[in-house]
Nucleic acid binder design. Structure first.
Lengths: 348, 348
DNA sequence: TTGTATGCGTTATCAT
DNA sequence: ATGATAACGCATACAA
C-alpha cells in the first residue's frame, strides 16, 4: 500500500509538504501543489485515516449501538443517522448489542479509539446505569428513559401520541377500548400504555385490566392478542395496538374471525409504517418521524463532540401525529398517491 | 484518557510487559500478571484500537456499502452481517452510497485505513467497473452482476425463484400472467423478469409486452401498475409482482376496484417478508433468506481477508423457495403461528 | 522474566 | 515556501 512517504520520495519533496498540500494547511507554492497532486493521482495514494486519527485524535466516526430492531424502524433510523453523519463528514460504526448494562458497556469499550461518540438505543434499560459508564466520550440515548439531565437523550412523544389515538377512539363513541401492549420493560411501550390509560381517565372511563393484553411488537403477538380479546365475555369495540405490526396481526385475526372492521371492531396502530395505508382497511395510526429521530440523535451527538462533551445536556423529543384512516371508521377512503417514484427500493 | 503508559507507570512496569499481559503474548510471571490486571481494572484502562490497528495493520472492521434500502431487507441483511462479524470479532462500518462507480469508489477510498475489507451492494451497477478499483483490499459483491471470476460475489437465485412462481401460476391454469417489474437497471429485477419470461416460454406462452409493467419496488408502484393492468382491454388473470411491497400495493388496488383475489385475479410476490402471511388474502411469495445473504457475504469476505486477498474467487448464491398461500388460490388457509415471541421488536 | 528501542502512517512544531 | 523531527498509542524484535 502506498504511503505518504512514497509520494514524497516520488515527488522529491518532504512528507511535511505533501501533508500540507493534501490538507490545505500552511503555504505551498502553486507549482509544488500541482506536482504533488499529480503524483498523488498517478500513484493512487489514499491517506490512511487510521494513522491520521491517531495524531489528530479525531476518528470522524460515530458509534451506533442498537438492540435487535426489525423492519422499517431500523432502516429508517439508520438512514436518518447516516444522512446527517455524512453531511458532516462522519461515518457510522454500527453494532447490535444486548440492551442491558453489560452489553452496552462491552460494546462501548470495544469502540474505544474508533469512534468520537456513541448513539445508544436501549429501550429496555433505564439509563441510570449508563451514567457511570467508564467513558468520557459523548453519548446520546435513543428512546430510553433517563432521569435527571446527566445525559443527552432523544425520544418519541409516545405518551401524547397514544393519548391522542385513544381519545380519537373515544370520540367515535367507543367505551370498551382494548390495548395490545408492547414488550415489557420497553420504554416506548410503557409510555404508550400510559397515554392510553390517561385518555380513558380523561373521558371518565376506568381502565379494565382484562382489556390490556400483552404483546411484543410482532404481528404474531397482535394476531394472538386479538383472538384472546374476541374470546372475552364482554368484548371490546375497539383495539389500540402499540405498534403497526401488531395492529396488522390483529386485522388478520379479525378477518379470519369474520369480524368487520371498523363496524364491529375499530383498530388503531402506532408508527404509521408505509404499509399502513395499504392494509384492508387502511390502518389508522400515530405517525412517528423515524428519520428525524436518527437525524436529531446524530446532530445532538455532534454538538457534544464539538464541545468536547462539556456542554449543557439536552432532552429532545420528536413529535407524533395522528393519522386517521378507515380502520377506525373515522374518515372516508384515503386513496394512495398515484405512483410516487421517490423510494428507490431494492428488493423488499 | 488513560494509556498503556499510565498503566505501566502505575504498576511500575514497562509498557512492553503491560502489552504482553493484555495480549497474552510472551511469558509473564503470575504475580505481575495479577498486578497489572488489577491496575488495568482500577484505572479503567481500555486499549486504543486505532493505535493498535496501526501497528498490527488489522482493523478488525469490515466496511459495508449499501444503496438506499428499505424495510425488512435492510435490517435483515445487516443482521446477518453483524451476527457473523461479531462472531468473528469484527465490527461493521456501514455507509450508504450511490450505487454508481463514482459513489462506490469514493466510499471505498474514505474507508482506507479503517476497514480490512468491504462488502458492497450495488444492484444497479455492472461490476465490470469495480474490477479496476484502486484497491488491494478484499471485496465481496452483493446482489450484483459480475462477469468473470475476478471478484467474490453472492447473489439471490432470482431467476429460479421467479420461474417457479410463474410456473406455479401457469399450473393453476392461468394463461394471461402479468408482471410488475422492479427498478430498471436493477440486477435482481432483471433476473426475475427473465425467470418469468422463461416460465411462460416453457409453457408455450408468448410474453406480451402489454403485460409487463414498470415498477420500482414500492407499494405505490404496485398500486398504480395494478390499476393500469385493470384498464387493459384484455385483462390478465394473474399478477406476479417482482417484490412483496409491490404485490401489497397491487392487492390494495384490486380491493378498491372490487376485484376478488384470487378468484378474479391471482397475485404472487417475491421476498416473502414477514407481513406477507398477514395480508388479505395471505400473499403467495418466493422466500428469500436475507439473513443468510448477509451472513454468507461476511463469511466470504473474512475468507478473503484471512488469505490476504490471494484466494480463489467464489460466486455463491442463496436459494429461494416458493411459498404458496391464498392469494394465488393454490392452497387453503394457512394460519399464522400462535404467538411466537422470538422477535424482540422495538417500535415497528 | 522483563526492559529498551523501533516503527506503524500521519500531522504538528519548529527550524531554515 | 520547505524540511527535519517529535509525537499519537500501541506491539514487537532484540537485549538484558
Amino acid at each position: 500500500m502506498v504511503t505518504i512517504k512514497d509520494v514524497a520520495r516520488e515527488a522529491k519533496m518532504s512528507v511535511a509538504t505533501v501533508s500540507r498540500v493534501l490538507n490545505g494547511s500552511g503555504p505551498v507554492s502553486e507549482e509544488t501543489n500541482r506536482l504533488i497532486r499529480e503524483v498523488v493521482g498517478r500513484m493512487r495514494y489514499v491517506p490512511h485515516s487510521g494513522a491520521r486519527s491517531l495524531i489528530t485524535s479525531k476518528t470522524e466516526t460515530i458509534g451506533v449501538l442498537l438492540p435487535d430492531l426489525y423492519g422499517e424502524f431500523f432502516s429508517e433510523v439508520i438512514r436518518g443517522m447516516d444522512d446527517t453523519a455524512q453531511r458532516n463528514g462522519y461515518h457510522l460504526l454500527i453494532s447490535r448489542a444486548y440492551a442491558d448494562r453489560h452489553g452496552i458497556e462491552t460494546a462501548i469499550r470495544a469502540m474505544r479509539g474508533r469512534v468520537d461518540g456513541v448513539v445508544a438505543m436501549s429501550p429496555d434499560l433505564d439509563a441510570e446505569s449508563l451514567l457511570n459508564l467508564p467513558s468520557t466520550i459523548p453519548i446520546v440515548l435513543l428512546c430510553s428513559v433517563s432521569r435527571g439531565n446527566e445525559i443527552d437523550s432523544i425520544t418519541i412523544q409516545n405518551f401524547r401520541g397514544a393519548r391522542e389515538m385513544a381519545a380519537h377512539l373515544i370520540s367515535l363513541g367507543h367505551k370498551r377500548i382494548a390495548i395490545i401492549k408492547g414488550s415489557v420493560r420497553n420504554h416506548d411501550a410503557a409510555e404508550r400504555l400510559r397515554g392510553y390509560r390517561m385518555a380513558l381517565r380523561d373521558a371518565g372511563i376506568t381502565p379494565d385490566p382484562l382489556l390490556e393484553r400483552d404483546g411484543d411488537f410482532t404481528e404474531a403477538a397482535g394476531y394472538s392478542a386479538a383472538l384472546q380479546l374476541l374470546a372475552l365475555k364482554k368484548r371490546p369495540t375497539a383495539i389500540f395496538a402499540a405498534n403497526d405490526s401488531m395492529a396488522i396481526g390483529a386485522l388478520s385475526a379479525l378477518r379470519e374471525s369474520g369480524i368487520a372492521v371498523p363496524e364491529e371492531m375499530a383498530v388503531g396502530g402506532f408508527d404509521d409504517i408505509p404499509l399502513a395505508r395499504y392494509m384492508d382497511p387502511p390502518l389508522s395510526s400515530v405517525h412517528v418521524p423515524i428519520w428525524e429521530l436518527g437525524a436529531k440523535a446524530v446532530t445532538l451527538l455532534l454538538h457534544g463532540i464539538t464541545h468536547k462533551n462539556d456542554h449543557a445536556r439536552r432532552r429532545e423529543r420528536v413529535s407524533t401525529k395522528l393519522v386517521i384512516r378507515r380502520s377506525t371508521g373515522g374518515e372516508p377512503a384515503e386513496r394512495p398517491p398515484p405512483q410516487t417514484l421517490n423510494r428507490e427500493k431494492v428488493s423488499v
